[in-house]
């Protein structure tokens, strides 16, 4: 037990002592971004406990509370809301917490999907080369000529068409995740293929081949760990893009069902009131979306620079 503890303590010390942590501490902007992501992430995760109301429970809504401005008591009910309410009397603050939850879930999950597809195909293409490589990369090239959004829309449409009406409602989020995930795999595959080809030529991979290690094991044990660094960078940058893609789809009305709105859905609802003076219904969800996307992007930028030996 003591030995295991010592190993763990050693790991922690190494992590705190690492170049990565050092460059993290030296970049105040990155620290701020990390704090923002952490706070929003935690708030979204803990929404059911933090949020003052459950905005999707129709029984808790009072239409009389509708369109209450932030921090002003409602003229009929006297209720005060931190960020105001929308037309249905929903608390905007609570809606943002729940909405961020959906946005982050879809973002994370779709990044995992594209990462899994991209890593698998990229490793295969880079390691095997030849026609396997040609086929995979040509497919990726063709897909890259279409905008991500269009591809996601197409996949989403096909999936909706294929599913029975009854299943559509509760399958909406998994379908959305798959569509965005599949729309974005080529970036991952390209990067992974490049790194794989470089690593494959290195002598330590040749040494593993001489030892008779099967190709799958070489890819997993030797090449995959080297691929993860750059993949982590695109995954982080990709997370904010995936969140925005989800918001765009929901804004267009094809994303998540209105019963469980994401930040994008809130934006769609809010934009109807921008002209009539209820600015807060649009403004606060938009700020939340921008804060998440920007912070995640900043983290990604830092990670890219920190992992790039040439910039150090």
């Amino acid at each position: 037990m003591a030995a295991a503890d010592a190993v763990r303590a050693g790991r922690l010390r190494r992590a705190l002592d690492s170049d990565l942590f050092y460059s993290f501490r030296r970049s105040p902007l990155t620290v701020v971004a990390a704090v923002v992501v952490l706070v929003i992430g935690l708030a979204a995760l803990l929404a059911p406990w933090i949020a003052p109301t459950d905005p999707f429970d129709p029984s808790s809504l009072d239409l009389m509370d509708g369109k209450t401005p932030p921090l002003k008591p409602n003229e009929f009910t006297g209720h005060t809301f931190l960020l105001g309410t929308d037309d249905q009397g929903r608390d905007v603050f609570s809606a943002i917490l729940y909405g961020a939850r959906i946005s982050l879930l879809v973002g994370f999950a779709s990044v995992v999907v594209s990462m899994a597809i991209g890593i698998a195909l990229g490793l295969l293409a880079g390691y095997r080369g030849g026609w396997v490589d040609s086929v995979i990369m040509r497919v990726a090239d063709v897909q890259l000529t279409f905008p991500d959004l269009l591809v996601a829309l197409m996949i989403f449409g096909i999936a909706r068409g294929a599913l029975p009406i009854a299943a559509q409602e509760h399958m909406a989020i998994p379908v959305l995740i798959l569509s965005i995930g599949i729309a974005k795999w080529p970036q991952y595959a390209r990067t992974v293929r490049g790194v794989t080809m470089v690593e494959r030529g290195k002598d330590y991979v040749q040494a593993a081949r001489v030892v008779g290690l099967p190709a799958g094991k070489i890819m997993r044990r030797h090449i995959l760990p080297n691929v993860l660094g750059p993949v982590l960078v695109i995954a982080t940058l990709g997370l904010s893009l995936a969140i925005i893609t989800e918001a765009t789809l929901s804004f267009l009305g094809v994303g998540v069902p209105p019963t469980s709105p994401s930040l994008g859905t809130l934006l769609r609802i809010g934009q109807e009131y921008i002209a009539s003076g209820e600015w807060w219904i649009l403004f606060f969800p938009a700020i939340a979306l921008v804060a998440i996307a920007l912070s995640v992007n900043l983290l990604g930028d830092w990670l890219r620079d920190a992992l790039n030996p040439r910039l150090r």
């Binding site: 002598d203 330590y204 040494a207 001489v210 008779g212 030797h222 760990p225």
Partner: peptide, 19 residues
């Protein structure tokens, strides 16, 4: 037979997996 022959490479900085 493969177990019976092995190889040593030129560049010891490249032939050992750094991770």
């Amino acid at each position: 037979l493969r177990r019976r022959f092995q190889m040593i490479f030129q560049d010891p900085f490249a032939s050992l997996n750094p991770r």
